[in-house]
C-alpha cells in the first residue's frame, strides 16, 4: 500500500476523491495525475478502498423494489381520492348545509301580494321553524304585508343575494329550496298575528363563502331598526360585537342579547328579534 506518497499533490488527490474541490482545482489534479505515478497509485488505492467498503453492503432482496412501489402507489391513489373528495363532495355538502340552515327571503318591490308575485332573480331560503317561508303558489315569494300583518317587507335590490345559477344549483342538489319551481314548500307554522312592533322591516345581508374553490352566497334576513343619528353613533361606539357590514345609511351587526337590550332602550324591539343572527341598524 502506498503510504509514503510524498508528492505535494497527495492531499489534493484525497480531496478530489471526496469531491470537495472546485472545478478548476479538479482540472489541475487530473492534469497532475497524468504525469505522477505516485498520486495515480494513491487514486487507485482510494478507489479500491471505497469499493471494498461498499462491498460490505448487501444487494436489495428480490421483489423488494416492486413491493415498495406497490405500497407507494396505494398511497398515491389514496391521496388522489382524498383530493377529489374535497373538490367535488364539499360543494354538495355545503349546499345541503345551506338548505337546512339559511332563512327564506321575502321581497316585493312595491308591497304587492307577495304570494302571487313572480319569482325574481334573488336567493330565498326556507327559515324552518320561523314563519317567513314563501307561499305555496308557484313562483311565489311568501307572505304579503297584509297576510301576516306584522312586518312590512322591503326589497333591497342592491343587496340581492345570489344569481339564478346559484339558486338553481342549490335547488338541484337539495330540492328543498322553497319557491323553486317544482320544489315543494315546507310546512310553515302560523305566524303570530299580534306583535308589539309594527315598524320593523327586513334587510338582506349576504355573505359569500368559498367551498372547494367555488363561491357560495348565503343570505340572511335582518330586522331593521331605525335610530336617530346620535343614537346610531352612540350604539356603534358602545357595541363590542362584530360589525359585519357598514355603509352610508347603516350597519349590520351580529345579534346578541346585549345588543337587543341596548336597542330596546332606544326603540321598540319585538321578542322575535332574538331569532335573527344579524340585525340592521339604520341612521335617520
Amino acid at each position: 500500500m502506498n503510504t509514503h506518497n510524498n508528492c505535494e499533490f497527495s492531499e489534493k488527490v484525497y480531496e478530489y476523491m471526496d469531491g470537495t474541490l472546485n472545478p478548476e482545482e479538479r482540472e489541475r489534479v487530473l492534469e497532475h495525475l497524468k504525469g505522477c505515478e505516485s498520486c495515480s497509485e494513491l487514486k487507485r488505492e482510494q478507489e479500491a478502498f471505497a469499493a471494498l467498503l461498499d462491498s460490505v453492503n448487501e444487494e436489495l432482496p428480490e421483489g423488494l423494489h416492486d413491493r415498495i412501489m406497490s405500497n407507494v402507489r396505494r398511497e398515491m391513489r389514496r391521496d388522489r381520492f382524498m383530493r377529489a373528495l374535497k373538490r367535488y363532495a364539499m360543494p354538495v355538502a355545503a349546499a345541503l348545509v345551506l338548505a337546512f340552515t339559511v332563512p327564506a327571503v321575502l321581497r316585493a318591490n312595491d308591497g304587492t301580494d307577495i304570494a302571487n308575485a313572480p319569482a325574481t332573480d334573488e336567493m330565498f331560503y326556507s327559515l324552518g321553524e320561523d314563519a317567513y317561508a314563501p307561499a305555496e303558489t308557484e313562483g311565489g315569494l311568501g307572505r304579503s304585508a297584509e297576510q301576516d300583518g306584522v312586518y312590512d317587507v322591503k326589497e333591497d335590490a342592491e343587496d340581492s343575494c345570489a344569481s339564478a345559477d346559484t339558486k338553481a344549483t342549490i335547488a338541484a342538489s337539495t330540492g328543498a329550496v322553497t319557491g323553486a319551481p317544482g320544489a315543494p314548500a315546507p310546512e310553515e307554522p302560523a305566524l303570530e298575528a299580534e306583535s308589539a312592533h309594527t315598524d320593523a322591516a327586513y334587510f338582506n345581508y349576504s355573505v359569500t363563502h368559498t367551498f372547494g374553490g367555488e363561491g357560495v352566497v348565503t343570505c340572511y334576513v335582518c330586522p331593521i331598526f331605525t335610530l336617530s343619528a346620535d343614537e346610531y353613533k352612540t350604539l356603534l361606539r358602545e357595541f363590542d360585537g362584530s360589525v359585519m357590514q357598514k355603509d352610508e345609511s347603516g350597519a349590520v351587526l351580529k345579534n346578541s342579547d346585549k345588543l337587543l337590550g341596548k336597542l330596546s332602550e332606544l326603540v321598540d324591539v319585538d321578542s322575535s328579534a332574538e331569532k335573527f343572527d344579524f340585525v340592521r341598524i339604520n341612521s335617520k
Partner: peptide, 25 residues
C-alpha cells in the same frame, strides 16, 4: 437510493433481512 436505504435499514435492525425490508417500505 433503495440499496443504500436497505443497508441502512439492515444496520438499524441488527442484520435482520425481513425487518430491514419492512423498515425500508
Amino acid at each position: 437510493t433503495e440499496r443504500t436505504v436497505y443497508n441502512m435499514a439492515l444496520r438499524a435492525t441488527g442484520g435482520d433481512e425481513h425487518d430491514a425490508a419492512d423498515l425500508s417500505q
